[in-house]
Design a protein around this nucleic acid. Structure first.
Length: 221
DNA sequence: GCGACAG
DNA sequence: ATCTTGTCGC
């Protein structure tokens, strides 16, 4: 067993105290990016879409792929997804002011969901945006655990929580503004991009190995 | 022991 | 997350 579950949990417990819950960027942000991952066999394809916060137009996109060894274990998703997400974000030529991650942030048993973990590793403000419940109790829209507020559940079943370097109120404000559809645009587009690349690789229209060592950049819409 | 369990 | 066809509706 190359993946030590207990050790991974200890890493989360150790890193959680480093999360900053204050806005460490100028609000409103100039631009925001969304990241997501798609899987194809034993590879993870990460996609990042950078958009203008006010105009909601795409500035640039980046795709990266990495081989994945780690299995999916509930609450330890970060260890499986972060390599691909981090690589995609780093391939962006501009550094996003805020990053929206398709995963939970503080809504996590040890307060370090993948969105928080990624923000800590990249040193970029992050917001957790998830579609399903993972942890905590719903108390009138607030996801709580005892007296602690971990995040918020918005309409259409979207969970928002602090990733890193952002307050919950600001995180919610940003997500709401970017919600043209259920998911905030940057995340929805990153999901579509990762999915599209995955299918193109399947159809032989793209070479996965080439994406693994060179990545893919674009300036689409 | 039982149920829950992001992507 | 992934697999997987058609179908209903704006």
């Amino acid at each position: 067993m190359r993946f030590d579950v207990e050790k991974a949990k200890n890493v989360q417990t150790l890193l959680a105290p480093r999360i900053v819950e204050r806005d460490m960027f100028v609000y409103p942000p100039r631009n925001v990016a969304g990241v997501d991952v798609a899987y194809l066999e034993d590879y993870a394809i990460g996609a990042a879409v950078l958009m203008d916060y006010e105009g909601l137009y795409v500035i640039e996109t980046a795709v990266a792929a990495v081989k994945v060894d780690i299995p999916y274990v509930p609450t330890l998703l970060a260890f499986r997804e972060i390599p691909a997400m981090a690589k995609a974000v780093k391939r962006l030529r501009s550094r996003p002011d805020v990053l929206l991650v398709d995963a939970h942030g503080k809504i996590h048993p040890r307060r370090l969901g993948a969105a928080s973990h990624l923000g800590l590793i990249l040193g970029i403000p992050t917001i957790g945006v998830a579609k399903k419940h993972l942890y905590g109790r719903d108390l009138g829209g607030n996801i709580v655990n005892g007296n602690e507020i971990l995040g918020r559940k918005l309409d259409r079943g979207i969970y928002v929580s602090v990733g890193h370097m952002v307050s919950l109120d600001t995180a919610v404000k940003i997500v709401e503004k970017l919600r043209l559809y259920s998911l905030p645009e940057p995340v929805r587009r990153a999901h579509k991009l990762a999915d599209k690349v995955k299918n193109m690789v399947k159809l032989g229209e793209l070479d996965l190995e080439k994406i693994v060592d060179e990545g893919l950049n674009g300036v689409f819409s």
